[in-house]
Write a protein that binds this DNA or RNA. Structure first.
Lengths: 128, 128
DNA sequence: TTGACACATGCCCATATAGGTATGTAAGTT
DNA sequence: AACTTACATACCTATATGGGCATGTGTCAA
């Protein structure tokens, strides 16, 4: 089986750096394809294709304006991603960095002597 | 050109639902491969392969324990994703839902009558 | 040593990709 | 109508994927 289609969901859609760049560019406001082509230094077909993917997952919406097509961001489509990663936020903001290790430690300490937490310095990675 | 490798970065790695499921399972604590196999209902090779990808992007770390290999979560690897989507958070939490439209409106209002900012609760589109 | 157990990999393959290039379509201009 | 501008698509291709299945490697048990 091949990888899931990029249009499967927002996760797959934004896995592409250029697609994220396009969304980032649209944060400022709606824009015609040509503007994105210039700003991102991509070819027109490239931008159109990426926009199509983003459109299929609902990350952007279009609006016709003469012979131009104004694309605008539709943030809510990215909420699932935010909701998911949010669950891992504390992993780097709090001292939860070694949650499992800490839990293991607690278990051992509890079993050994319930009241002496002097040993910690296990080889922990030097920053991430 | 094909799609970027799944091991390119966290974005590509977590585009796979099963990979996210694995990470979610590891939030509780480190676990041997077999446990994940049972919890997620996947085959052993599947889990091993997914874990490899997650390992290559730093989302998980391994620890040998006899003939088992205990995998544990390494949240910080997901920070880039969080940092990125965070920029879109207001898109659905605030009344920014129609940012561009609002901006357009403001421009028109500014042109019409410049001086009346009493009404805020602009009707959020009842669309879907 | 032999065997069971826990994982990691190798191999095969159908599938979807992303880029390049060319072309199709619609709208504005002269 | 002819031409240009602004996009969208079609077609082609190398590449990486993820699943199934078999097998290799290292560890504990008998």
């Amino acid at each position: 089986m091949a990888r899931a289609a990029t249009t499967t969901d927002a996760f797959n859609a934004v896995a592409e750096p250029r697609r994220r760049a396009i969304l980032d560019a649209l944060v400022t406001g709606e824009r015609p394809v040509n503007a994105l082509v210039g700003e991102l230094g991509l070819t027109q077909p490239q931008v159109s294709k990426h926009l199509r993917v983003l459109r299929e997952v609902g990350a952007v919406e279009v609006r016709d304006d003469g012979r131009r097509r104004l694309y605008r961001l539709n943030g809510p489509a990215l909420k699932p991603i935010h909701d998911w990663v949010k669950g891992y936020e504390r992993t780097w903001t709090e001292r939860f960095e070694r949650l499992d290790v800490v839990l293991e430690d607690l278990k051992h300490q509890e079993a050994a002597h319930a009241g002496d937490e002097q040993r910690h310095g296990d080889g922990h990675a030097p920053d991430g």
